[in-house]
Design a protein around this nucleic acid. Sequence first.
RNA 1: GCCGGCUUAGCUUAGAUGGUAAGAGCACUCGGCUGUUAACCGAGAGGUCUCCGGUUCGAGUCCGGAAGCCGGCGCCA
Length: 427
Amino acid sequence: MKIGEILDGDATGEEITIQGWVHRHRSTGGIVFCVVRDATGIVQCTVKKDNVDEDAFTQAEGSSFEASVRVTGTVAEDERAPGGFEVKAVAFEEVGESPDIPLYEEMGIEHELDHRHLWLRSRKLTNVMKIRHTAVRAMADWFEENDFWQVWPSVLTKGAAEGGADVFELEYFEDTAYLTQSSQMYLEAMIFSLERVWCLAPSFRAEKSRTPRHLTEYWHLEAEQAWCDHEENLKIQENLVQHACNTVAEKCPEELDELGRDPSTLSKVQAPFERITYDDAIDHLQDEGYEITWGDDFGAPHERALSDLHDGFVFITHFPAKMKPFYMALTEDERHAKCADLIAPEEYGELIGGSERSTDEASVRQRLAESGEDVEDYEWFLDLRRYGSVPHSGFGLGLERFVSYLCSLEHVRDAVPFMRTPARLYP
RNA sequence: GCCGGCUUAGCUUAGAUGGUAAGAGCACUCGGCUGUUAACCGAGAGGUCUCCGGUUCGAGUCCGGAAGCCGGCGCCA
């Protein structure tokens, strides 16, 4: 029997057996109170000396925090028990002992991260993992409903892709390979057969970032759509985000609550999102007294100021062309790129970056060369502009940033089971 | 890459001005308790104060350096 079924009231009065781990353990001498958790919830078991045989009582008394146990007993409603239900044990068996597990009520961040493989048992991380699962499922469902195909591009690449300096490099037989920073270019290749594609894949950045929003390995949800312009691209993004937020609010209210996130905040997320152009954003910031000029990128304080303009998500659109990578489509005057960043509420920062893509081979080739890339490595990408090119757009969402927002987390490291940062490769 | 901070028991930590005070809570061990909610009560064990060097009669405490970690900025998702 799963504990969740007990908490739903489905087993009251029945004799059942549960299997799980000791979450709390107290004893008054004649009664052992053993709170047991499994994947579905936690419930208190009372083991009374008179109701079980001597060996079972000894095992119950001796079991400790995070030991695995099997308990048989009668389910009863009881206001004295946390959660309102308890199992009155008739049998108790310790399956695996847990002597001195290094988890404590109070832990410093370093201890917590050094023992992440054990700390994953915590209520907090369990809730986060469930919400992450639910959010991904919701987005997969949304893509399914909207005629997208899920695809699985390669993670090992030859070209260093956008940027160049901050890629992880590794030996690939007699060649050099890089870990992908984005699946975008491979997705672009796949729209010519499937038209609308999406993927969820790890992306890697070798940048020594030290912020609550950066990981060296993160999960990148990317989509690419044929016959799609900048405007349509934004609609896809906001509808996707809305659906994920609403679904999580609906399916995980208790998990959200325990994490300190009011589910109604997420159920209220509603497209369309606010939009502000880069030029207007610069004007606004200058009016506010920030020292920023056209052509500068936004720093964290600027992003916060822009985010504070509205309650919800906000798109910042049409950045200057020279600030953006070679593959983006430009406006008529070629001063701006047809791109947008989606800024999450509550200072969670940039959640999505996306753009309409340039379809002009000559232009892409030229800007590629100007950006210092080795054009030879991108010939295949230029082929896509040569054979049956179509208007198309796409975007990438940082899954951990999204989960951080959904769960009201302070750091993306808690949005993923095993964080990878410049200083953390173990466990 | 830049700036700032932290490191005392298994964990979280207290230790003004350098001087027989290295202390507490939790966890652990032993004993008690038949309704606990981070149970409680009694007893016990547990420390080369991150490392290296310096100042001093004397350094957990002051100075210099190293390492590890954290926070902020930049970069981005």
